[in-house]
Design a protein around this nucleic acid. Sequence first.
DNA 1: TGTACATCAGTGAACGCGCGTTCACTGATGTAC
DNA 2: TGTACATCAGTGAACGCGCGTTCACTGATGTAC
Lengths: 205, 205
Amino acid sequence: MAKRGYHHGNLRQALVDAALALVEAKGPTGFTLSEAAKAAGVTPAAVYRHFDGREDLIAEAALQGYEIFADLMEYAFQKGQPSALASFEATGRAYLAFARKYPGHYVAMFESGISINRKPELARVAHRALGVLERAAVELSQHIPPQKRPPAQMVSAHIWAMCHGVVELFARGSPGTKSPFPPEDLLESGIGVYLRGLGLVPPDD
Amino acid sequence: MAKRGYHHGNLRQALVDAALALVEAKGPTGFTLSEAAKAAGVTPAAVYRHFDGREDLIAEAALQGYEIFADLMEYAFQKGQPSALASFEATGRAYLAFARKYPGHYVAMFESGISINRKPELARVAHRALGVLERAAVELSQHIPPQKRPPAQMVSAHIWAMCHGVVELFARGSPGTKSPFPPEDLLESGIGVYLRGLGLVPPDD
DNA sequence: TGTACATCAGTGAACGCGCGTTCACTGATGTAC
DNA sequence: TGTACATCAGTGAACGCGCGTTCACTGATGTAC
C-alpha cells in the first residue's frame, strides 16, 4: 500500500480497495474508473496495466466479495454443527452480517449489475457461497417427516429471499425505508417463524 | 400520443413512458434524459418544459408506479375480505404481480436510487401502498392469541422482505440467478410456511 | 368571421464536463555476466 | 562489485463521445374584440 516513488508496489489491490470504497459511498452508479485511479494516486491509464477496464475492475471486487462471503457462510455452518437447526440459523445470520460488514463488496456483488456468469471463476465462488445455504437446507430437511417435507432447494430459496429482502429494505436505506426494528431482530424473528412453520421448532415460545 | 406537427400534444406523459421503457430495458443506469427525449421524438431541451431535469423525470415515473402499486394492493386486500388470511395472502401476491407486470415502474421505484422522501407527494403514495400491507398484518394479528402475537409491523416487514427478496433474486435475473421454481410458487409456499409458523393455518397440508 | 396579439411548447446551437480508452513515452527494477 | 540491458509499471497528452443543461429563438395555438 505504501507508495515508493514511481512504482506503486500493490496497485492492483489498491484499485480494488478504492473501487469498493467508491461503490459503497456513492452507489454502483457513482463508481468511475478515473476516480478509483485518482483515489489510488495514479493515472487512469495505469489501471489498464492490471485490468481490462472498468467492468473488469468491478468484477474483481465482486469476486473478492464472494470469496469472503463464502468463507463466512462456511464458517457459520461449521459453527452450528452438529445441529442442523443451529447451522441453518447461523448461515442466515451470516448473510446479514456480511452485508453490514462489507457493504462495498455487497454492492459490487448484488447491485452493480455485473453478471455472475461473467467469468467462470466468479460463477464458481458464487456457487460455493450459495451452496452452503443449500447444504444447510438439505440437512434441515432430514428432520421433517418426508410426506410434509418441501424440497430443500425451496427452503433455501425462501431463506435467501428473506435475507436479501431484509438487507435491501431495512439494512440499507433503499427507498428511505425505516423500520422500528433492527434488521438483525427482523431476520432472526422472521426465520424463527418460518422454521416453526416447518415444524422444526416448538410452536410455543 | 399522436404528434401533430410542432406541438406534441401529450409530451409529458410520452416522456414518462419513454423513461419507463428505457429503464426497463437497460436498467436504472442506462436511462438518460437525452435518449428519453429522442424516443419521444423531441429535443432534449424540450424536456425542461415539463420537468426540472433528469431526476425529476424518474421521480415522476416512480410516482406513477407507486400509484398503480397502491391501487393494486388495495384491490387485492378488498378482494380477500372479509377473510384476514385471504386478504393478507392476496397482498403478497399482488406485490409480485406488480413487479412482473410493471417492471419499468418497479425499477424506477426500487432500483433507480431516488428517495421516497424526495417529494411529499411521493412519500404519501408510497406510504399508502405499504400501509395496505400493514393493515392486512394488523387484521391478521387479531387471530393470534395475544401472548404469542408478534407486533403487526414486524409481520408486515417479514412479508415485505420475502416478497422483495423473491422479486429481486428470482423474478429478475439479478446475479444471473436461476431457481427451479417459478417465483409465484416460491412466494406462495414461502408465505404459506410463514403463516403456519404464526399458527394461522393448520400444520398439516 | 376576421384580425391582433399573448401565451405556450417546441427548436437548434452551444457550453463545459468527465468519462473510458489508446498511445508512444520513460523512469524504476531486476537480472546476467 | 559493476555494468549492460530487458522487462515492467507507470506517465501524460490526446481522442471522441454523449451527457445534462442554458439560451435566445420561433412556430403553433388560443383568445379578445
